[in-house]
Simulated assay, not measured.
Amino acid sequence: MRIQILRLPLMELGGVSEEPFALIVDQVQRDDNGWLEPAMAVFAEQIGARGVWVTDQTVEIVEPELPHVVDHVPFDDLTTPYAEGM
């Protein structure tokens, strides 16, 4: 049995951001009592998941490739017009 997280689209409401998620429980060995699915649903609710999917199959979650984000701009040329106004 594996527990994976499936990230859902980011939600923003009134300046508050939330990254919802769902639990994917795969490769489950079915038991005779059937307790696993209700227990996982309770667990998912307790940790704030939007839902849970329990399956005996193997599920591969493919994360989309994030865009390349520039987190800095090189500032090594002090002769640029922008730098002259500083």
Score class of each variant (00 low, 15 high):
residue 30 R to D: 13
residue 7 R to A: 07
residue 27 Q to G: 02
residue 9 P to L: 04
residue 39 A to N: 12
residue 17 S to V: 10
residue 23 L to D: 06
residue 41 A to T: 10
residue 46 Q to N: 11
residue 14 G to S: 11
residue 41 A to Q: 11
residue 13 L to T: 11
residue 37 E to D: 09
residue 11 M to I: 10
residue 11 M to S: 03
residue 9 P to M: 06
residue 24 I to L: 10
residue 45 E to Q: 12
residue 19 E to F: 01
residue 28 V to Y: 09
residue 20 P to N: 10
residue 23 L to P: 05
residue 46 Q to V: 00
residue 14 G to I: 06
residue 42 V to G: 03
residue 14 G to Y: 04
residue 19 E to L: 10
residue 15 G to E: 05
residue 7 R to K: 12
residue 46 Q to L: 09
residue 15 G to D: 04
residue 40 M to H: 02
residue 41 A to L: 00
residue 42 V to P: 00
residue 24 I to S: 03
residue 8 L to C: 08
residue 45 E to S: 13
residue 11 M to C: 00
residue 37 E to S: 11
residue 16 V to P: 01
residue 23 L to I: 10
residue 37 E to Q: 13
residue 16 V to W: 05
residue 7 R to S: 13
residue 28 V to Q: 02
residue 21 F to E: 09
residue 22 A to N: 03
residue 47 I to M: 07
residue 36 L to M: 12
residue 24 I to N: 07
residue 25 V to L: 12
residue 13 L to M: 10
residue 18 E to Y: 11
residue 7 R to I: 03
residue 13 L to P: 00
residue 14 G to M: 07
residue 11 M to V: 14
residue 15 G to R: 04
residue 9 P to G: 06
residue 35 W to E: 13
residue 31 D to H: 08
residue 34 G to A: 08
residue 38 P to W: 10
residue 25 V to D: 01
residue 15 G to Q: 09
residue 12 E to A: 07
residue 32 D to C: 00
residue 35 W to D: 12
residue 42 V to M: 07
residue 15 G to P: 12
residue 36 L to S: 05
residue 34 G to C: 01
residue 12 E to C: 01
residue 7 R to V: 02
residue 32 D to F: 06
residue 36 L to H: 05
residue 35 W to S: 13
residue 45 E to I: 00
residue 14 G to Q: 12
residue 40 M to F: 11
residue 8 L to P: 05
residue 45 E to R: 12
residue 35 W to T: 08
residue 25 V to G: 01
residue 45 E to V: 01
residue 25 V to K: 02
residue 31 D to T: 15
residue 25 V to T: 01
residue 22 A to C: 10
residue 44 A to K: 02
residue 26 D to Q: 03
residue 23 L to H: 08
residue 32 D to M: 05
residue 19 E to T: 07
residue 27 Q to H: 13
residue 32 D to I: 02
residue 12 E to I: 12
residue 9 P to A: 06
residue 14 G to N: 13
residue 37 E to L: 14
residue 21 F to R: 07
residue 22 A to V: 01
